[in-house]
Simulated scan of single mutants.
Amino acid sequence: MTNETAAPRNAGTETAGRAADVLLLFAGGPQHLGAGAISRELGISEAVVHGILQSLASRELLETAPGTAGYRLGPAALALGVSALRGFNVRNVAAPVLRRLRDETGETTALSGLVGDERVYLDQFESPHEVRMTVEVGRRLPLHAGSPGRVILAFLPRERREAVLARPLAALTGRTVTDAAALRAQLAKTAAEGVAVSLGERQPDAGSVAAPLFGPDGEVHGSVSVCGPRHRFTSEAVERYRTLVRDAADEIGLNWTRPA
């Protein structure tokens, strides 16, 4: 009896392990993968991979990637990522720093997290000004437009960054950079300076300055930003905010591993 019940249990464990391995390939590598590439990477047959992909897609953990023969992370996987990020103590660690940054700048401050090949706002502290910018917590946004996303993109591993740049880049405003070559140059400058500045890239009348947020593993996991009406983001204000957001992101990153 023991042998009869052990086989199905072991088979189920193996299937679950393979499905987890497939998902982890998307988390740590290219954002679009086909059955052939997954089969070669994991050393399992394409028939088995197809079955896993279909099962994961039926639960919206994966979805077909438009314009390719492959798959990408689906909305259910992104939702899990958001939940995981919210569970990190980073939000509790970041709260007093974001509040102080809001008081120092007089503008709205925000924490963004990397989820798949997009970002989401995890928290914000609103400006006291009557005319101010606010962000939508939990909303999925592209990485190429706006300083909070662009500074994350600049510090991603090259393979992941190039996967984002290989896709069509939507023009959210007339100032959004959509040419991959031009964006690479902009990202190189962002990486060298350790901060990104946006004036009307994602929203026409918005300005923002952002710095990357690195996790305990040394990888970029999000960003810290200051945002407000574009007319208040003068050259003098932007220069001041550069230092403030870098210092805030560094402080949050250093304290991330401590219990909240």
Rank of each mutant, 00 (worst) to 15 (best):
R246E: 11
S225Q: 00
P229M: 09
D205N: 14
R246W: 08
S225N: 10
R158D: 11
L244F: 05
S235Q: 10
R161I: 01
A170D: 11
A171D: 03
S235H: 05
E219K: 13
R202I: 12
G218E: 05
P229V: 04
R232W: 01
L172F: 15
F233R: 00
L172Y: 15
F214S: 05
L199G: 12
P212K: 04
V245L: 09
V197H: 14
G222E: 02
T173V: 04
R160T: 02
A185P: 00
L169R: 07
L187C: 10
V238H: 01
A191C: 12
S225P: 07
H231T: 12
H231K: 02
A210F: 10
G222C: 08
T173S: 09
V224A: 07
D205M: 12
R175K: 12
E251M: 07
G194M: 12
A191N: 12
R232I: 09
V197R: 13
P204R: 14
R240A: 10
V209G: 05
H231S: 10
A185T: 14
V164A: 07
A192D: 13
G194Y: 13
S198F: 05
G207I: 02
A188T: 14
G222N: 02
A171Q: 06
A196G: 00
L187M: 09
A182C: 02
Q203F: 14
L165S: 07
F214I: 05
R167D: 14
D217T: 15
E239H: 09
A196Q: 05
A185W: 07
R175F: 08
S223R: 04
A185G: 15
D217V: 09
T190N: 10
T176A: 03
T190V: 15
T234W: 02
S235I: 06
